[in-house]
Design a protein around this nucleic acid. Structure first.
Length: 567
DNA sequence: AAATTATGACTCC
DNA sequence: TGGAGTCCCTAATT
């Protein structure tokens, strides 16, 4: 980072290197802050002040060697601590231990509003973890009234307690060779999970038998965006990919059949390469719907395996359509969402451009849009503006969402986009799961929990963590029948089940995970998992809270995953 | 152990 | 309208 030339520092080389060393090792030593680090920090700060008070003007050192040889701009290194976010002085953004300190000059990264930082965001403070409902709109329409009178009576009055799969049961560490991009449970075989990754690999795993797993890497050549099972019971499943194809693959043999290829002329540069996203099927018509990165929707007849009609522009031309969902109660009702910041409702029988039944506006890219799984009467979207939006009735006023729930999931590269997913088992259609981007300090380790949110109130129901999972879990899916959560975190897969007794702590230490399959080369780094055992020495006598442990740079606690029930 | 890389949306001109 | 520059708590690799 070239900076304007400054005069040479008068500091001695010795003191210079010492100071530089301090600066360089700073974040490291902070991250691994031992219990006694407060003293060290204080010492360090003192030293800093000495430096800056010694000579304010000499805050930059010129490394002059190169300047002597070539007449290039000199490379300078700042000795004064500057904020890596805004380059200003007087403060520093970044991790201090496992707590992230925000740059005060930037707007809040959570709610995106100026005047406060993420730490002091009212959305975070109010609900503790960044989830808060926006006020319910008060412009009830007559349709809302009809809905309340006629349909709501069908919905059970008493909400059953939410069941939270909060403890890791088993996992496949680095099963995939790239990060997980999609997950799908088998519709009838309870323990079978399919997973797709960024490289195009497709994993099939029977998590009832830890070792029954398989990875196919010849089905797709890049990102597997969607996995859907064939509803006709043929034992095949569909996948859509950024390689521009839909494949129909036999679950037993892994032999794929290409149903659709939207790049018949091959590669002619990135500007024209079409990628397929948001695949869903319409079981009533045996239709497969899929969309591309230029705004177009395609339809394929699942039986004749042929393309139907011409592609239809359903989102802004040239913009990526990221999601499609057929209404579970009325499959001809289609929901789409995309990079043009809109989610749209369509009648799939009359699909022509500009003919959407409704357009739902968002602040940024819409990562996902789903009808509710039972009645299909609600809509939930996840947008990169850090909000989960809920429309309580598709028959009501769709001009504005019924609720906006602020939640940290804004990250658009390096990670698979976050999507809030319904719990298909919740009769009240209000429990959803979504991974959290922003980290939280759990006994000295920065962890990214998986959040369970009640979208009828906006309340955070639970945040689940596993101290060994230090990576973000953007891909989550709840089982259609069992109390099971599957999560994809980086290249690893995890199966979560409810804690056997959430209220009692007596037998907590007896709970064990079944195990983790670790590739040979990774064994060393996974020692903690392998050792996970009857060792309950980290539990205090009451067994309620795990004892705090020194942060060793990797993990705060041995042992058990935890869930925090909020409220 | 720091540097590098992959990588997507957004802003600005 | 499009290309360059920017961005923020990534994760694996060297």
């Amino acid at each position: 980072m070239p900076r304007p030339p400054t005069k040479n520092s008068s500091s001695s080389a010795a003191s210079r290197s010492r100071i530089l060393l301090h600066g360089a090792s700073d974040s490291d030593s902070d991250r691994s802050s031992s219990p006694s680090s407060s003293e060290a920090e204080a010492e360090e700060e003192e030293e800093e002040e000495v430096v800056s008070s010694e000579d304010e003007k000499e805050e930059e050192v010129v490394i002059g060697n190169e300047e002597d040889k070539k007449k290039k701009a000199p490379i300078t290194i700042s000795l004064k601590k500057i904020c890596k976010v805004c380059k200003g002085t007087g403060h520093q953004a970044g991790f201090q231990g496992a707590t992230y300190i925000d740059c005060p000059m930037k707007p809040c990264y959570l709610c995106k509003k100026p005047g406060h930082t993420t730490m002091s965001c009212p959305h975070r403070v109010a609900m503790e973890h960044g989830v808060v409902p926006a006020s319910r709109r008060n412009n009830q329409t007559s349709m809302d009234y009809v809905f309340d009178r006629q349909l709501k009576t069908e919905i059970p009055k008493i909400k059953p307690a939410f069941v939270i799969p909060s403890q890791v049961d088993c996992g496949l560490i680095k099963f995939h060779s790239r990060r997980i991009t999609s997950l799908e449970f088998h519709p009838t075989q309870d323990n079978v999970l399919l997973s797709g990754d960024k490289k195009g690999q497709l994993g099939i795993w029977d998590y009832g038998k830890l070792h029954e797993k398989m990875v196919y890497d010849s089905i797709h050549s890049c990102i597997v965006n969607n996995i859907k099972f064939n509803s006709n019971g043929e034992g095949t499943f569909y996948t859509s990919s950024s390689d521009g194809t839909i494949c129909c693959t036999d679950l037993e043999t892994g032999i794929p059949l290409v149903l659709l290829d939207v790049n018949p002329n091959g590669w002619n540069g990135a500007a024209t390469w079409r990628m397929l996203y948001g695949m869903d099927n319409n079981p009533d018509r045996g239709l497969l719907l899929v969309a591309d990165n230029f705004g177009y929707l395609y339809m394929v007849d699942g039986r004749s395996k042929t393309k139907i009609g011409e592609p239809v522009l359903i989102h802004k031309k040239g913009s990526k359509v990221v999601g499609l969902h057929c209404n579970p109660a009325q499959p001809d009702l289609l929901l789409s969402c995309g990079n043009d910041h809109f989610a749209r409702i369509w009648d799939a029988r009359r699909l022509v451009g500009e003919s959407s039944l409704a357009s739902l506006s968002h602040g940024r890219v819409v990562n996902s849009a789903y009808f509710s799984p039972r009645t299909g009467n609600k809509i939930m979207t996840t947008s990169q503006d850090n909000r989960i939006r809920v429309w309580d009735s598709i028959f009501g006023n769709l001009d504005s969402p019924s609720r906006e729930i602020v939640h940290s999931h804004d990250f658009n590269r390096h990670l698979t986009p976050f999507r809030a997913e319904w719990d298909p088992k919740d009769p009240s259609e209000s429990l959803v799961v979504i991974g959290r981007y922003i980290s939280k300090n759990y006994n000295g380790v920065a962890l990214h929990p998986i959040d369970f949110v009640d979208i009828s109130t906006g309340k955070l129901v639970a945040e689940v963590i596993e101290p060994e999972i230090t990576t973000i879990s953007p891909v989550n899916k709840l089982h259609p029948r069992d109390d099971v959560l599957a999560s994809g975190s980086s290249r690893s897969l995890f199966i979560w089940r409810p804690r056997e007794e959430d209220d009692s702590s007596r037998h907590q230490h007896e709970q064990k995970s079944k195990g983790f399959l670790v590739p040979k080369a990774e064994k060393k780094s996974r020692r903690k998992f392998d050792q996970e055992s009857d060792d309950d020495s980290d539990l205090d006598p009451k067994g309620k809270k795990p004892k705090q442990k020194k942060f060793n740079g990797k993990t705060a606690q041995n042992g058990k995953s935890k869930v925090k029930i909020v409220g």
